[in-house]
Nucleic acid binder design. Structure first.
Lengths: 147, 147
DNA sequence: GTGAGTGCAAAACGTTTGCATGAGC
DNA sequence: GCTCATGCAAACGTTTTGCACTCAC
């Protein structure tokens, strides 16, 4: 997960302006320890500075996605959530209860799949592996509730 | 990809009523040879019977998803599309140009990943592998356009 | 006959836009 | 100072809802 400094330089290196709003949003991103929705981000940002416009936030989200500062993740529920990005090829392990994300560096996309893709004649492929489950902490909470 | 008959019995076996609208939608589903959006489906259905309400269509989509008659797929572009389901565990190879879908029966989720998931302490996991690329036919079309 | 399913229209939802204003480089 | 970026509010497109009506069982 990128640090504030890394995010700022990623933004800066693209020739984008380091406005107060963008920096505020980047700062807010750090307070999430897992995934978050656009709305959750909006609430946190508004708490810090109520004058930030919705449009600014969505424009920043798009920009950050494009620069790789953020990544978008599709939950089984159908909701899209965001996480702060990290470098290198990786996949995600997501807790469907609390939204916790763990980056997985192992990639199951090996020779077997590559061969199938080639056989089907597809080019310019990218792949997405998302594993969804319940994290240890949420398992404990759930057990506690039933017992 | 399920046949019309299979879809009808999947619906029927759940105790759901076989209404004219639902059957019309199931029939329409067969005409797609790849993925489709809710709107594309709506257009096709409306062409057959203009009196079908939007709400009915969305309610049917939800129902079909729940019964496994349809599957929802997340495109890299951010759009959600649907495909007619098929039985057994499988993943998808998607053409980002035309929406063509190929089911892949090989599953890369093996011991390696299983061990990582266990190590991280996650339970009740499900996984999603989506490969996006450009199919053979669309590659040819693109080449033709440039040359 | 009964209740699941429907059509309609209006509302809700999250997101995007147009434009005048304001701030970064 | 020149442009990119912003705030506001209104528009947008998709999906959901509430309700009276209807049709499958």
């Amino acid at each position: 997960m990128y640090s504030y400094q890394e995010m700022v330089s990623m933004l800066n290196s693209g020739g984008y302006r380091l406005t107060g709003q963008r920096l505020l949003i980047l700062e807010t991103l750090q307070s999430f320890h897992g995934s978050f929705s656009a709305l959750e981000l909006e609430k946190k940002v508004m708490k810090k500075d109520q004058s930030v416009g919705r449009a600014t936030l969505f424009r920043a989200l798009d920009l950050f996605l494009e620069k790789g500062i953020l990544e978008k993740i599709h939950r089984e529920s159908g909701d899209d959530v965001y996480i702060v990005g990290s470098s290198g090829h990786h996949h995600h392990l997501i807790c469907r209860v609390c939204g916790l994300i763990r980056d997985i560096e192992a990639c199951p996309f090996g020779e077997d799949l590559r061969a199938i893709v080639q056989q089907e004649g597809f080019s310019d492929t990218l792949h997405r592996v998302e594993i969804e489950g319940v994290c240890r902490a949420c398992q404990k909470k759930q057990k506690g509730r039933i017992a």
